[in-house]
Amino acid sequence: MKRFSWFNATSLTLGFAFLYMPMIILVIYSFNESRLVTVWAGFSTKWYGELFRNAEFLDAAWVTVQVAVLSSTFATVLGTMAAHVLVNAGRFKGRTLFSGMIYAPLVMPEVITGLSLLLLFIGIGLERGIFTVVLAHTTFAMCYVSVVVSSRLVSFDRSLEEAALDLGATPWEAFRLVTLPIIAPAVISGWLLAFTLSLDDLVIASFTTGPGATTLPIKVFSAVRLGVSPEINALSTIMIAIVTVGVVTASLISKRTAVARAREEQAAVRSE
């Protein structure tokens, strides 16, 4: 019985048109000759040139990349540790508080996270700059990482790690040689998630940043507050292109590894 009807086809078409139309329009107008974003005056790539000559944007982009690489790496290490503690450490004093602190930042409004961290930094007299933004991003991103990694750790067969320990591996070796390779896909997607969250964050960065550490979202926000600008369209197009290539590549790779794994498993079964 065929359930795929005209209704479904229409809702999918309209739904995806709604999801993608605004971004397509944004990309189209980034190639507009005119500064007036709404009047089409012919094809041009000049706004990309303007963008790359704009030192403020380039500086902000560099700050953003530094913050994102550092904070997502710290967040991945801390988040993986936290996931390991949540899943494997059993009972310990303050466990409820710990899991509460892992899940709370996920639902905490960004304005509150930002405000509270800023008040802390001022309270302890820490000078604000790239370092404080990294601290802030690491803190909320590690919670996301630990959720992603712990969902993988839950289904991980611990007897593998125990076997390695029985065979004389140190706990660190057992983790590095047995557990880590198996949970690696979750750790990598946790890192990517943390990286994207950091790249994207406006609110928390605005609260915790200081002079000389303007990130790209802060720069973009202050520019678009004044209205639509073709340079921002060009910048957005570049970012959309990077994300699209990244996500499509990642999904192709994961599809290929899934196929390869299925083949290996079949081969293993056959050879038995």
Partner: peptide, 29 residues
């Protein structure tokens, strides 16, 4: 289809909000 739904999630939130400014303004699309 699933990837097409998730893709916008990886794209900057700020950019997705901004994209509507050019559509909805008085001289907008």
């Amino acid at each position: 289809l699933l990837m097409l739904v998730i893709l916008p999630f990886w794209t900057s939130f700020l950019i997705r909000v901004y994209s509507w400014m050019g559509i909805l303004s008085n001289e907008g699309v």
